[in-house]
């Protein structure tokens, strides 16, 4: 465990309470009742849709979803219907964190005042990167700070994909979006590096005792993290990498390949922060160069070797922080 990030909430006084965590051992052991059912207008090969499905499999029947505006609202409900077999409510892209705060407060009060005789439900906000790291950040922060017993998930497809692939704070350096088109004046397209959302949430919200990154390419890991997060009393946060065939320009059959490649190159890392302690869940045996990830996607088609090097340097610095900076083997 690297010394450098030990301070992340580890000194906070709140106690950690975990109840009813049931681990999924492998794919065969996974629950098989679907609460995110077929019949939604997401893209063929949609990464966020798979993230939703896996989350719903893990969280089960006693769950309420809130869905801020984004692909997972518009595509899922395009025709005045929705594919969730559990309660779902639309929220504005701005206020997912606040709406789940209200739902949670309502259940606390109603159970205490004996207006509700069911069990306290799992309350999950399933927000895109815009609804989490950008316009929804204030509501996310308020929710995490206040200590509500909820899970906030950011499904990260690294752009405003619903409106047609516009840059968000999670869009990687060098990506072509329709708001960052590369041209002679701006050869790299997206010029800035993304926010570190998990670190932001971890560092400034002492009530949050469980945070995790996950990827749809590692479904069992993802489902277990959802369950762990829900088992923790209090606010928890997950950041799920969800490749987007439309926005990143790759073939719809390659969604999981791209997700794996992201982890193998260090563009994405799988780790948890449990009560301030960082735990890396997966370290690729053979680290691959970022160039391989870049070449697999149309959104990076314009990058020069120098730009790819800048991206590599950024990735190296992030990996160093997690103690994962191993040499890239020669091809």
């Amino acid at each position: 465990m690297p010394e450098t990030i030990k301070w992340l909430g580890s000194e906070a006084p709140t106690e950690v309470r975990i109840e009813g965590y049931q681990e999924i051992k492998n794919v065969k052991d996974a629950p098989d009742v679907e609460y995110y059912v077929p019949g939604h207008r997401t893209c063929a090969g949609c990464g966020p849709a798979l993230a939703y499905r896996l989350t719903a499999l893990a969280s089960g029947k006693n769950t309420i979803f809130a869905g801020p505006t984004g692909c997972m609202y518009v595509a899922n409900t395009s025709y005045l219907c929705g594919p969730w077999a559990v309660p779902w409510i639309h929220t504005q892209i701005t206020n997912g964190g606040a709406v789940i705060s209200g739902i949670e407060a309502s259940y606390k009060a109603m159970i205490r005042k004996k207006k509700y005789d069911g069990e306290f439900p799992n309350i999950i906000c399933f927000a895109g990167d815009g609804g989490s790291a950008d316009i929804g950040l204030q509501a996310l922060s308020g929710c995490m700070y206040r200590g509500h017993d909820v899970l906030f998930i950011c499904y990260d497809n690294e752009s405003y994909a619903n409106t047609g692939i516009q840059t968000s704070p999670m869009t990687p350096y060098g990506a072509h979006t329709t708001f960052t088109p590369p041209g002679p004046v701006v050869p790299e397209g997206k010029k800035t590096f993304p926010k570190d959302l998990l670190k932001m949430v971890a560092a400034g919200h002492p009530a949050v005792k469980y945070l995790a990154t996950a990827s749809i390419a590692y479904p069992v890991d993802l489902m277990n993290k959802v369950r762990k997060a829900l088992a923790h009393k209090g606010p928890t946060f997950m950041h799920i990498h969800a490749p987007c065939p439309k926005g990143w320009a790759f073939e719809s059959s390659k969604t999981l390949d791209i997700g794996k490649l992201a982890v193998d190159t260090g563009m994405w890392t799988l780790y948890e922060i449990v009560n301030g302690q960082v735990k890396v869940n997966y370290a690729p045996r053979r680290r691959k160069p970022v160039a391989e990830y870049v070449q697999a996607q149309g959104r990076f088609g314009h990058l020069t070797p120098e730009m790819t090097e800048r991206l590599q340097a950024f990735v190296d610095s992030k990996l160093a922080e997690l103690g994962l900076l191993v040499p890239i083997p020669a091809v």
């Binding site: 009742v33 609460y35 059912v37 077929p38 019949g39 029947k61 594919p83 077999a85 779902w88």
Partner: peptide, 8 residues
């Protein structure tokens, strides 16, 4: 909402 294991 649709039923669990159902479809939309």
């Amino acid at each position: 909402a649709p039923l669990p294991n159902g479809s939309q």
